[in-house]
Design a protein around this nucleic acid. Structure first.
Lengths: 200, 200
DNA sequence: CCGTTGTTTGAACGATCAATCAACATCGAT
DNA sequence: ATCGATGTTGATTGATCGTTCAAACAACGG
């Protein structure tokens, strides 16, 4: 690990702390003790705490391919299996944290009740990039899905299932809630594929 | 409106403020100015801020029938339509708040990162009562749904769709994201009903 | 009228928060 | 060696947070 700049250190620590404790519950002091920096250094790089958040959201946005999609997909080729492999990566995150933490973007999206325009747009952009990746999978599935299917809506539905499943698993501290949600989504995809086949 | 007790005033104000601003961002001072009470009065009724939260979650839990289900269902009899009528009630909440606020329980569930056991159990209980109501609808739908369908999982899937749809609508400040999610859920129910019919 | 019990008052407390800034260190360029 | 630019130090600030408590007040039975 190369000696990272103050900026990188802060972003790295903030990504973890915001995920663990949320934005409001993470104090500047938390970030300083974690990074071994002083407040002046932090404020030299980021004008305010919100700018740290913006940096974090930009890092998630720019890293979605290599940090999330690539590790989740590995050698998987089948487009529909790629969707469920991504969902399985979230499952692993849930299990790893004993059902305490879920999707960092989703948590922030619900925690920040009146975010600035810039923050809200970054949250939205993160969601959009996520669903765009799913959309590509759906497109690649081609004729296995019915002709008339709304690809945008279906991709957003996958995100919905992930976020809703994560929320319930976290609340009940039980992955089974996530698993049942994904099983239902799988059933939905199976039904779609069956109808596509029937019409062919 | 009868002269309510201090306890009722605080719970009422807290339900609104926690919904609008979240738990952490709502200060005791906010509650006091809203209720025109003094801090001593509040702490005479609730030992701590967390006890206010507990009171709020109990109020939601105990009021789900008459505050949520009854108004949403009105004169609707068809069990499957009752499900979508409930979802439509959430849609109305989203629109009314200009896509700023969603499900109060879901927001709290994601905002509180390390809640006490009692708080977590109350959050979970709220979800459970919600899905139990959906489960009754699914059961009432009887043979319109396939025999082997997992009723518990399907009910939780409805909650998933609601929470995920609300989250996206809030983040994008656009109800269309909620609508697309519900449309997908409707498609899922339609497919289930079609297969139930085909097998009959 | 007194005494008792239950409730309200609101100033005050210590903790913690995000943010500041004058002084200081580092270092490449000249 | 000197200088300016760039980055760092960390004590300090003022605001706000949840919470406390001695004193005052209200209601009511005896």
């Amino acid at each position: 690990m190369a000696p990272s700049s103050a900026r990188e250190k802060i972003i790295h620590a903030a990504m973890e702390l915001f995920w663990l404790k949320g934005y409001n519950s993470t104090s500047i002091a938390d970030l300083l003790s974690r990074t071994q920096l002083n407040s002046g250094s932090l404020y030299h790089v980021f004008p305010s705490k919100q700018d740290v958040l913006i940096g974090v959201l930009e890092a998630y946005r720019d890293g979605i391919e290599e940090m999330l999609l690539a590790p989740a997909w590995g050698e998987i080729d089948d487009p529909i299996e790629k969707i469920f492999a991504l969902l399985n990566a979230y499952r692993a995150m849930i299990v790893e944290s004993d059902c305490a933490y879920g999707c960092p973007i989703g948590s922030l999206a619900l925690e920040l009740h009146e975010p600035d325009l810039q923050v809200r747009e970054l949250l939205a952009h993160n969601f959009t990039k996520w669903t765009a990746a799913i959309e590509l999978c759906i497109e690649a599935a081609g004729k296995r899905l019915p002709r008339g299917v709304d690809k945008v809506a279906l991709a957003q539905f996958v995100l919905t299932a992930m976020e809703g499943g994560v929320m319930q698993a976290r609340t009940h501290r039980d992955v089974a809630y996530f698993d049942r949600t994904i099983a239902q989504l799988r059933a939905h995809f199976d039904l779609l594929q069956a109808t596509a086949k029937a019409k062919a």
